Computed example of a mutant assay.
Amino acid sequence: MMNFEKLYDEDENVKVRFIGFITEHTRYDFGIVYTNLFFGKPLVVCMQTGRSTLLDPNDLEDIDYLQSAFRIENYKDAADLAEFFYRTLPTSPFEPQYD
C-alpha cells in the first residue's frame, strides 16, 4: 500500500447557492459554494456538465479562462457569463457566519 501525506481534511458548514438562468443562446444551472478554504474563492459548479472552478471577480477579467473552465464555445456567451458572475460573486472573501 502506498503512503499518502494528508494535505488537509476539513469539515465546514458552507453556504450554497443554486441558480439557473438563460442568456440569448444558452441555459445555465450553477451551484456556488461559499467556503473559507481556497483563499475564500467560491467554488462554482456547472450542474449540467459537472465542470467546476474557483472564481473571484479578478478571475472574471480573463474571458478565455472562463471559456476553457466551462467549455463555452462562443466568446460572447462567456462574456455574458462573466458579467453575471461579476454581479453574483462577492468582491471580498466570504466571511463565515458561524465559527
Rank of each mutant, 00 (worst) to 15 (best):
A69Q: 10
L55A: 02
F38M: 07
R51Q: 13
E61K: 14
Q48L: 11
Y65I: 00
E5I: 11
D77P: 03
V44L: 08
P90D: 13
R17E: 14
L43N: 11
G40Q: 08
S92R: 07
T35L: 13
A82P: 05
N3Y: 12
R17S: 13
L37V: 05
P57N: 08
L7R: 15
I63D: 06
Y28E: 00
E83F: 05
D62N: 15
I22V: 09
S52M: 07
D80C: 09
F94P: 03
F38Q: 07
Y75G: 00
V44H: 01
F85R: 06
K76A: 09
F30I: 08
Y8Q: 07
F70Y: 15
H25G: 04
R27P: 00
F38D: 06
R87D: 14
K6F: 12
L43P: 03
I72D: 07
D80L: 15
Q67K: 14
F30T: 07
F85H: 08
D59C: 06
T35K: 10
S52G: 01
P90Y: 14
D77R: 10
L55T: 04
I32W: 00
F30Q: 03
T53I: 03
F4C: 04
F18S: 11
D64Y: 05
E10F: 08
L60N: 05
D11A: 01
F70M: 07
P42T: 12
G20C: 04
A82E: 06
F4H: 07
T49A: 04
D80P: 01
Y8V: 05
F38P: 00
G40R: 02
F84V: 10
F38T: 07
Y86G: 02
T35P: 02
R71K: 13
A69F: 01
F18H: 14
L81C: 03
L43V: 08
R17T: 15
K41N: 09
Y8G: 01
P90V: 10
F85T: 09
M1V: 13
I72W: 10
